[in-house]
Amino acid sequence: MKVFFLCRTGRHTSLLAAALYLGLLKKKPGSNEDMHSNDIFGLHGFDANYCRDDGRPFFVGADRDDTEVYTIGVRNVGPIMAKAANDFISLVGTKKGEWCVIDTSPVTSRWTSAGLCLKKMRLYSLARFFFYLGARRELPFLLKLVEENRKMSFHSKSA
């Protein structure tokens, strides 16, 4: 199975979701412990240069069930590219339930969006601080999203 997480850059919200999916970021739901910035910035590819690679899937890793997890940067057309990706994958003959496209852009916090603006203005340190704040804000929602999709994919596999 292949899972594609979509967000604006493919290197922030979607990468966090992919890391949660693969268990690279561990945070128990409801726990009060804050995630350390090193955990987030230590993720391979987090906040890496992305402009040239917009749209190109980025391989994050594979889990024990051989589920390959990718992120895709889709600018501000997440729902549209999610439809296009779904249509294209089904068009190439992939069986239903063998892939999953999850648009994480609704979860993207304002802090992350502000960080992207700051990065464009070349204020990198400040941008990274905003990304950290954004990631902290997004993590509970992403955990929920990932768990829901994991359950759905489990059901579709067993069906």
């Binding site: 292949k2 690679d53 917009d54 749209g55 190109r56 899937p57 390959e68 990718y70 895709i72 940067g73 889709v74 600018r75 057309v77 549209i80 590219m81 296009a84 990706a85 294209f88 994958i89 190439v92 992939t94």
Partner: peptide
């Protein structure tokens, strides 16, 4: 249809072609 994001659309499809 892909709004104004032709590069994103093409990159994504080419990337998916590589993956599959």
């Amino acid at each position: 249809s892909r709004r104004n994001e032709s590069r994103v659309f093409e990159n994504m499809l080419r990337g998916l072609m590589e993956i599959y």
